[in-house]
Design a protein around this nucleic acid. Structure first.
Lengths: 253, 253
DNA sequence: AAGCGTTATATCTTAAGGTATACAATGCTA
DNA sequence: TAGCATTGTATACCTTAAGATATAACGCTT
């Protein structure tokens, strides 16, 4: 038993972007005309034209610009707006596909039952969710040390159980998310700490006793920390090292 | 711009369970015959019959049992297998709906762009993901103290930032997940600790220096802990109190 | 054996989609 | 400048598949 589900955007209750139309738009982008695109997909010219027409009329801004006559008799090109739409559709579709894959994994083909696992599409309270690439996995007895490379190149060590490594199928080269609470972040005092990331303070929000600090650790990866205000005098623009305990980090795939 | 996506199961590449058919099956379950169900949905009897026929022939086990003639002229009832299928479809659909809702939240209607947020359908390394109901939210300056009630009734305090409470829209009565690493769990030594949950050890896996312990804290909610083996002598069946630091817990919705 | 409510099937209707073709628009070329 | 090439635009016609309606078959009751 397989799962499938086509993602479609709706506008005013009417289907707007659907898979067929997306591939058509891609073909138009490539070939520069509706007729050629229709042949390439393949689909009838009529359907193609109708699809384009419907999309253009439903959309607040035109998605394609059509020109009749001219050098090669005219042509159809995708507008800037259309391109961003395509790009965003691709992003959403990717997420959706990931989700379906995970959902499929839970289905037991034979019995028609499902392993009941908690929420799949979960929104987390943790303010820090940084994407990074796995550069090494070194197992020890029960735990494993996973090293991630942030966009900036800085390394982040994560300690998770060996069991979790297997469950998540953590492999070198994969992109994963390092998830940790803002309260798990502190400022460098001990040189031998697990993880120290270097960055600059970009935001500061003080309160009675606590202080929310946002640190850019390079390439727009941001770490949010909530620390005791008395610790140290902080100011925006200041270079600083932050420490995240490796056993406080959760890995997400 | 709205998102929509119908969840369909496939079998041998052919659509098997789709939304329309599911509501039909529910109607059959209620009315006891295809014809009455078709009227109730509403849909033509032919479509209803065909749908049922296709499903039954695609399925490894029959989903409905049909009887022609007899007391009331016959009838159609859902088999045990069909019922579990319905139940499971509902579960998957719920997950899928949640996911789409979250995906929709990210779409910006006007610009057709999306707030790029990390992975939505994420699989986490954390071994402890317990579902519970929010019984209170008491904000302080920066942090907030969220109290969850497990199925067993035991309370679990979670400390997250006030910002996270707003982002997640945490409200009393909601079901949320408490997520924490097995390394964040320890055994009770201090009576004044944040959270102590009472339970019984149901699984024990020893190693050189560390020990994985699974504790049932009531109603099949299980907590996994990885602790230093030297701490204490443990045995399956033993009653024990576990401690989870409230600032180590991540909340998921 | 007639009646009933149902499943099962056959026939008809309709709507969607495809094919084909005519027409309009524009720049290029001779 | 007149035709030509090429593509978008629009329409007429055909095909096909889905849906609705009508009818047959069934098996039990009375």
């Amino acid at each position: 038993m397989e799962l499938s589900s086509a993602l479609t955007f709706e506008m005013l209750g009417k289907p707007f972007l659907l898979e067929k139309r997306i591939v058509l738009l891609h073909a138009i982008k490539e070939h520069g005309s509706i007729s050629k695109a229709a042949k390439a997909v393949p689909m009838s010219y009529k359907s193609a034209w109708e699809a384009v027409d419907v999309m253009n009329s439903l959309s607040p801004e035109p998605i394609v610009s059509r020109e009749t006559g001219g050098k090669d008799g005219g042509g159809t090109t995708i507008t800037e707006y259309g391109e961003t739409l395509l790009k965003n559709y691709a992003l959403l579709k990717e997420e959706h596909t990931r989700f379906l894959e995970r959902l499929s994994e839970l289905t037991d083909i034979k019995s028609g039952t499902f392993k009941t696992i908690g929420r799949l599409a979960m929104q987390l309270s943790a303010r820090n969710q940084i994407q990074a690439e796995v550069v090494s996995v070194t197992p020890s007895s029960v735990h494993a040390d996973v090293v991630l490379a942030l966009k900036s190149g800085q390394r982040l060590h994560v300690e998770i159980t060996q069991e979790a490594v297997e469950n998540l199928q953590v492999e070198v080269g994969q992109r994963m998310s390092a998830i940790f609470k803002s309260s798990s972040v502190s400022f460098l005092e001990d040189e031998n700490a697990d993880n120290h990331l270097h960055g600059t303070i970009v935001e500061l929000e003080k309160d009675d006793a606590l202080c929310k600090v946002v640190i850019d650790v390079g390439c727009h990866d941001k770490v949010v920390a909530v620390v005791d205000i008395s610790d140290r005098v902080l100011s925006v623009g200041e270079q600083i090292d932050v420490v995240v305990q490796k056993n406080h980090i959760i890995l997400g795939k």
